[in-house]
Structure formats: structure tokens, C-alpha cells
Design a protein around this nucleic acid. Sequence first.
DNA 1: ATGTTC
Length: 439
Amino acid sequence: MKFYNFPAEGEMQCDVRLFASELIYDEIEATALKQLFDASKIPGIIAVVGMPDLHQGYGLPIGGIMVSRINDGIISPGAVGFDINCGVRLMTTQLEFSQLQNNLEKIMRKAQIKIPAGVGEEKENIFNKNEFKEILNHGVPYLVNEKGIGNKNDINACEDNGFIEGADAEAVPEKAIERAFNQLATLGSGNHFLELQRVKEVYAKDCGLFEDQLVFMIHTGSRAFGHQIAKHYSNIAKKSGVKTPTKNLASFKINSEGGINYKKAMAAAANFAFANRHLIAHNLRHIIKEFYPQESFDLFYDITHNIAKKELYQGEEVLVHRKGACKLAKDGIALIPGSMGTFSYLIKAQNSKANELSYYSTAHGAGRKMSRSQAKKDISQKDHFNSMGTVKLYHSSSDSILDESPLAYKDINIVIDALEKTELAKAVAKFEPAAVIKG
DNA sequence: ATGTTC
């Protein structure tokens, strides 16, 4: 087990731990590290941890974990992120990749029509306003149990069974509902994707996957809904919250009116995101059934990487913010999506001591190497095209996609290597994309 | 990430 530990000094309330390999540590941005140190200076914070995909973010860096006491602690919209409950789900078939034959193109084209992608894209909401609020308050179980959409495994294979308790649509600003009412079952833009993948390698035979298996991965979140909530409450926290070292880490006392309302709205956004991934997967399920009527299309796991949750840690209840970091499932697994055109991974917890020190957290992806603007400036079409190899891209927008090029991200294999070196986790299976839908 | 600068 190996990690970098920076002992508390000055205003720091706790040590800062960074789980990184030497290779990653040498390249980590000073600005991202500074954001970790600033987070450790907020009263009530008992732990700050960085993952190997750490990079600069709004307030807390992406790949950051910030843990607060409950009674006198804080909750920070900037430490959850703008895309509340952004996450990843893996859907499995029992088909071998070779059985696809010439259906890849047809499946992806149908998916592109049925699953809107891109900035501001909408899909007519099949639910009325009351049903929409039920989704916000109760997430995936409402869709399965009350509306008959999906099956029991679609609930059980979700982190937290596809809903965060304590959600209250009444704490959601009306503007969030206006903006996102017609964004359920849509993919969005940025690093979000829907990929058709092939299980390239299985390192642990008992992981429930087999080599050459045809699977689908969906990476998306709460669209404009979570974004509007994050913006709304971050602004309130800046005006009337507790004082923090940096403005964008603006926080509420957990038990203050602002803290209570943000938590209710954050949970509603989390439920929106769970429902969003569930509905996208369900629509994809219909497409798969058209081609393979006898095949099952099952949820393997759905994991979030932008959320704050109450968790029991060494007998004490604490609030764990994870931003661009995910929580290991009960059986120790987590899904780590690659950037467009690169491998994704299923990983499993490795060393229980390392896992304890990281609050059972792990990395969430490759992590950016370049800002969006830098990528658009520095990456040529030709270099980008070469970096995509044989992966077929279905891009809905006429805009350039260079800011999402694999060249704009760190090599995910280096992140996985760092997880193994720090003994946080080891790779269990590797997924190779064959086709990707981007916004 | 985001009606990509309320």
C-alpha cells in the first residue's frame, strides 16, 4: 500500500491523502492539489482524499473526496459537482461480440434516434408533472414498481437501489424543472456517452462477465436539472453560507435551512439521474429485443461518481462528498469509464486498509489532461482521428468533438495502474469500445 | 457538466 500523506498544519483540520503513483504525482496540477488543501481548512472536515484521476475543478477538484462530521459539519454544492449523480451503468447481453455481425450499424443508428444526445437536447416526457415529481422523490423503484418500466434487478443492481432517501421536489427551484422536464431519457454532452463494447479481457473469472461478451455502457447524469440546482444552491451558499477558504467551496452547515434544502434538492437530482440512466437503458433494451428477441438485456451495475452521502465510518455517521470519485459497492466493485474510444474497466477492492483510508472510494475515469479550450486549440483533426483507431463514432452535433478526444485525457491505463500500485483496487475486466454515441 | 458567458 502506498499513498502520499500531507500532515495537517496551519489552518488544515486534517491530513490530506493522495492515492497516486509516482508517474501521476509528477504530473498532477498544483492548482488541483491546492484545492484539496483548501478543502481541508473548512471547520468540521475530518478527511480529504485525492484519487489518481485528480484534476482541477470548481471548488473541490475532480477526483476529490471531502468528509464532514454531521453535527457541526458542512455540506457543499461545489464538493458534489454541477452534474449531480453523474454516473455509469453497464448493461449485459449473453451474446458474443461476433454474433453481432452486421447489426452494429443498425443498432447504433436506432439508438441514436431513440436516445437524444447533445447540449440542450430534449425528448418528450412520457410522464405528467405529478409523475415527474414522484420520480424526483423516489427514483428507479417508482418507475419499476409503480409504472411497470423495467424489472426488479434494475433496482437491485443500482447503487443505493436507484434512489437517495430524503429527496423533496419542493426544495427544487422551479427553473430546474422548467429546464429539465423534457430531458429525462437523454444523454447530454461533454464526456457523456453510450458505447457498444466488447469484454476484451477478464482477469477474475468469477466476476460475472466472459471474454468477447457484448455489453453496453451508459455514462450520463442529471442534465440541466442537477446543474440548475447546483448553481442555485452554490449561489445561496456564497451569500449566506459558512465562510470557506475559496468562494467556490461555499458551504452550508448540514443542519441549517440552506443545508437541509440543498440536501433535499441534491437527492432529487440524484433520483433524476438514476431515472435518466434507467430510462435510456430501457429504451435501448427495446432496440436489442428487436434484433435478438430471445436475449436478456440486464443491468450489471449502476454507479454514481458525483454525490454526498451519509455513511457509517468507524462507528460514526459522517457525510462523504465524492466528486469525480465513486464508492466501492458492497462486493467491492466499481465501474470506471474511459474517455471516448479508450478502454473502460470493472475494478474490485484490493487492500482493506487502503480502502478504509480512502473512505471506500475509487477513481471515476481517465481524468482530463487538457482543458476543453486547450484541447480544441492544440489537437488536430488528424491526430484525433488516428487516436480513435477503429472505434465508430456517432456524433449528433455539427460542433467539433476535439475537446472530448482521447488525446485530451490522461491514459486510463495509468489511472488503473495507480489504483493497483496504491492497492485501492485491481482490474477485474476490461471493455473495448466498438461504437460510441456522443452528444 | 451546462439553453457551452444570467
